[in-house]
Write a protein that binds this DNA or RNA. Sequence first.
DNA 1: ACCTCCCGCCATGCT
DNA 2: AGCATGGCGGGAGGT
Length: 866
Amino acid sequence: MENEKENLFFEPHKRGLVKTPLKESTAANIVLAEIQPDFGPLTTPTKPKEISQGEPWTPTANLKMLISAVSPEIRYRDQKRGLFDNGNGLPEARDCLHEHLSGDEYEKSQPSRKEKSLGLLCHKFLARYPNYPNPAVNNDICLDEVAEELNVERRRIYDIVNVLESLHMVSRLAKNRYTWHGRHNLNQTLGTLKSVGEENKYAEQIMMIKKKEYEQEFDFSKSYRIEDPIIKSNTGQNGHPDMCFVELPGVEFRAASVNSRKDKSLRVMSQKFVMLFLVSTPQIVSLEVAAKILIGEDHVEDLDKSKFKTKIRRLYDIANVLSSLDLIKKVHVTEERGRKPAFKWTGPEISPNPSGLGPVLPFAPSDLEGRRSSKENCAKNLFSARGRPNFTRHPSLIKLVKSIESDRRKINSAPTSPIKTNKAESSQNSVPFPSKMAQLAAICKMQLEEQSSEPRKKVKVQLARSGHCKPVAPLDTPANAELEMTAPSLIQPLGVVPLIPSPLPSAVPVILPQAPSGPSYAIYLQPAQAQTMTPPQGLSPTVCPTPSSNATRSKGSTDTTTENAANDAPKSSASARPGSLLPGLERQGTKNRDREPAGERGSKRASMLEDNGSKRKFKEDLKGLENVSTTLFPSGYLIPLTQCSTLGAESILSSKESSGTLSPNHRIYSSPIAGVIPVTSSELTAVNFPSFHVTPLKLMVSPTSVAAVPVGNSSALTSSHPVPVQNPSSAVVNFTLQHLGLISPGMQVSASPGPGTVPVSPRIEAVSVTPENAGTQQGRATKYDVSVLGQNQTNGQSVAVTGAQQPVPVTPKGSQLVAESFFRTPGGPTKPKGSSCVDFDGANNTSIGTLFVPQRKLEVSTEDVH
DNA sequence: ACCTCCCGCCATGCT
DNA sequence: AGCATGGCGGGAGGT
């Protein structure tokens, strides 16, 4: 470890130092940093950082800039930093900074807390390391050193590191040491978190909370119950709060000591918090909701204010770090009552599963993997099946649902996308996916993600690799696509989903009734989902609730010890999976609970939508959810990535014998990713964290290619989508729509043309487009729901869901504003949120029905927001 | 007055 | 015992 320092060239620090000065203050800096990373060690020395700050050649950079521009705070920070940085070139700078800096700067730096803010500190911290460090190099981080350099207490560093660790951007090596992974794994991690979040049904939970709040307004008692059950279920399954920490491949903590810590709460909180963003459609999460959910999971019981407050404090801490990472941005959700602090996800959109990750789970260790794989599978299957709606439900219903979903997505996406758009990633952003769509899209997304992982990455990668590999671009397009298409099975199995060949444990193949071709149609649902396949009681037929039981198993283990769990996970995973599923079901029993921390407060909200009917619906829905949930939530999943290393892959292969037997290495090469990425397996191995390398997935696949991929599976799709250029997401949407019959084959929705909204089918457009639409949309949703789901009534309960409806950006934010503005309507903006009906996403269809209902009432959302 | 959240006490757990 | 981690919440800066 000592070496870490030695690593100078890699040294993040140094780089950081250099960069730091540049600084993020200008958003650009970050970008630079990112870029640099690729070069990694090599570059480090050189680094131009200072200079360049500016340019964002990367979308990300743009975002950053925008963000910084938008939020005064950030600017402030940046400025300060800039000052600092300038002052500091070096780590110690801080002192220097103050001194060096001019009075203004000095002042800023000194006094205000802001200077000391965690966010700023985090920026500084991040500035020292490249976003994409060269794996080959050691990127060790010595906490003490960092603390000194940054002139902060160690305690603060822990806060930062813990959050970063939750994202697998760093991993602990030993006592004071952490290894910097940067963003290589980020997408993967996010994908995993999303998957977990879906499994945990956070979306549903969010809805519930909102409902509850909203209901509370109406009726206290009822609301409580409703919520509780859900929440509890989550917790309840395992019996304890799910504190599980999601581990990613490669990230696993090496240092024995490290693992031991029981707590990880901060880490866990961070992950969960992130999951909330990933799962919720609007991708806006209010602190209240987040706190409630986190509390709920942890301890349903304690709902004290104090606890709530504490959670919120922690969330602020986490949020600051995430903000520094540009993953979220602070916004305010305005509601009737007032505005609530909330955060909006500004990070890359992620597909639930990191297919690209392949590296990650060869084994399919835990549920996650299974899930992922399942998801992927689903997507594949769907595509293959493509021709038609696989779902059991009547096609008509399905269509409706899908259409709705698509609309919602679009709507949702629209807002978001624009924002994101800035980045290359935007492409992904454009479409949030609903469950089914999501699944379908999942593959695409994954790829996209990879892409999205950032254009910069690509660039970087290319740059970096250029030497190694060929230019990415060429690869991406045709080559990659082809690869994927041709040998998807091989690749996937290897990398991501071994399951496919032998479904099993990880994924449960669900056969859709209609699905003619078993396999084609068969959807591998996550175990949980599979279980639940039965529609929740009242819920709409359309979707299946999918509970994810799988996780549970892991959790239990995790609870005890993360370490153990981690270790076990892989082992057990295989075996466990099956068992886990079942068990999960068993657990359902305990669900009930009443309580809600926040719920109590709920009374505040004056308005309530109320409607007994609506409430009832909700309840029903909730029940459905509950049922599901019980099964579902595994609250914590551990993903053992141990396998990260090539070895893992190999083992996996061997064990599974994925259809294609490829040596891990081969896989790598063969995989599209590999194509893109210059890194050879050998390299990976060589490096400490091989997995990461892979992970990054830098698939540079062009959108087109992406689209192609899915298509590959299903010829129909391809045929259907002529559109080459569209974003994959759009392609998917189109595809879906077409299938559904919503749109004529000829029609296609344009992928998000711009960052902005994407025009969808006529219907969709109508919905999405209009601002006010919220109402309109809602109305629509309702209609659909009704028609689709016979059961659901229209009540609108609004679940408000997601809240955020109105995320009004407090500060004028550039991009966001625009996007948001779309959504927002004067009155109740929110639609977007409603649309959010999280459930759709991915996880399950089942929820869809439920979710929809809530959506209707956007207004409600407001309420719930607190 | 409320929102943020810094600061650092002190518990926890490993060495 | 000593040290590393981090939970936690008082209380202050900001707005």
